[in-house]
């Protein structure tokens, strides 16, 4: 019996999400009275692996990349499924991000293990194994029963608090090996921006909508995000108009995010937009229309024109910082 948590790395490093996953796995293993094991694939050094120990993991299986040249979901899913079988996993935990979303369903099929994606809390019950998950794009939550003996959960980012619980983990290092590794995909080109806070990782997000009136009005919004160490985002009409890049679009068909603080500036709050941001811990709305639906979702608000309120807000933050 064990709980296995797959901890993805980004150029050999972990991030807050990795520690959230480990915290969750350790807690769940405690509930199930079993041990939690972290599984890492790729080039990660011992020092980085040891950081997982801060959150209570006692054992780490590290598979060095070996013949795998890049992330291929078919190959990685086999490695994860093999490890889960070998370690007799009751529960396998992954992130509900791009990698997790492409791996978990494959592992589910390989192990014939029930999968619940996007869970945001510990199971509601263990017998039967029930979890709560977001459905209808945030308009409801479903209690889902996982009916198999091995279960897979993908955890929503920023939904589970870090739990420090120092341990000195044992690291078992080996080289990933697969019989006939799949070779269906080949990387041609990678374009990466570095140094920018990722929208999905950001704890504070400052987002603008059509109420910003023109793309020329974005400077104070960007400044506010920078001052707060956050990321910028936008509503769908703004990205459709090309005022901001598509990667910034948050909402049902764009990115679904759950920061600690979300500023909706000049965003009316259509259902489709709320679907992407409703898991934010706090929503601040700034809108000139006092009846805009965004104020029903927000905890704090200012009724006013974004072009006037925003510069004043920037000044207020500067003052707070000084």
């Amino acid at each position: 019996m064990s709980v296995i948590v797959y901890t993805e790395n980004w150029d050999g490093k972990f991030k807050k999400l990795s520690y959230e996953l480990v915290s969750y796995a350790v807690k769940l293993a405690e509930m199930l009275q079993t041990q939690a094991i972290a599984l890492s694939i790729g080039d990660v050094d011992d020092q980085e692996l040891k950081t997982l120990g801060r959150y209570g993991i006692g054992r780490i299986i590290q598979l060095d990349r070996g013949p795998l040249s890049h992330f291929d979901s078919q190959a990685y899913a086999r490695l994860i499924a093999d490890t889960a079988s070998k370690e007799n996993a009751n529960v396998l935990i992954m992130a509900n991000n791009n990698a997790g979303k492409s791996l978990a369903p494959r592992v589910s099929v390989r192990l014939k293990a029930a999968l619940a994606s996007g869970v945001n809390q510990l199971p509601v019950s263990l017998q039967p194994f029930l979890v709560s998950k977001r459905v209808f794009s945030g308009n409801a939550f479903a209690q889902m029963e996982l009916k198999t003996d091995t279960r897979i959960l993908t955890l929503a980012q920023n939904s589970f608090d870090l739990a420090e619980n120092p341990a000195d983990p044992v690291i078992e290092r080996s080289v990933a090996s697969l019989e006939a590794p799949p070779s269906g995909t080949r990387v041609l080109d990678i374009q990466k921006q570095s140094g920018k806070t990722l929208l999905t990782d950001a704890e504070i997000v400052v987002s603008g909508g059509r109420g910003m009136k023109t793309p020329d009005n974005w400077a104070p919004l960007v400044e506010l995000a920078e001052l707060l160490g956050g990321a910028t985002a936008c509503s769908r009409p703004v990205s459709d108009e090309g005022w901001r890049p598509h990667e910034e679009h948050t909402g049902q068909t764009g990115k679904i995010i759950a920061p600690n603080l979300y500023f909706a500036i000049g965003i009316s709050g259509a259902t489709q937009h709320l679907a992407g941001i409703s898991s934010s811990k706090y929503i601040v709305a700034i809108n000139s229309d006092k009846d805009a639906p965004i104020f029903e979702a927000a905890q704090y608000g200012i009724v006013g024109d974004a072009s006037k309120v925003l510069p004043a807000l920037v000044e207020a933050v500067k003052k707070m910082k000084s």
Binding site: S108, K112, A113, A114, L115, A116, L130, S132, V135, G138, N139, A140, F141, A142, Q143, M144, E145, L146, K147, T148, S278, A285, F295, E296, A297, A298, Q299, Y300, G301, I302, V303
Partner: peptide
């Protein structure tokens, strides 16, 4: 492999403070 037993509406949020 899974079954949904019940649906719940999301928790209501506190009223907006202006």
């Amino acid at each position: 492999l899974t079954a949904i037993s019940t649906f719940d509406p999301p928790k209501p949020r506190a009223a907006c403070k202006f």
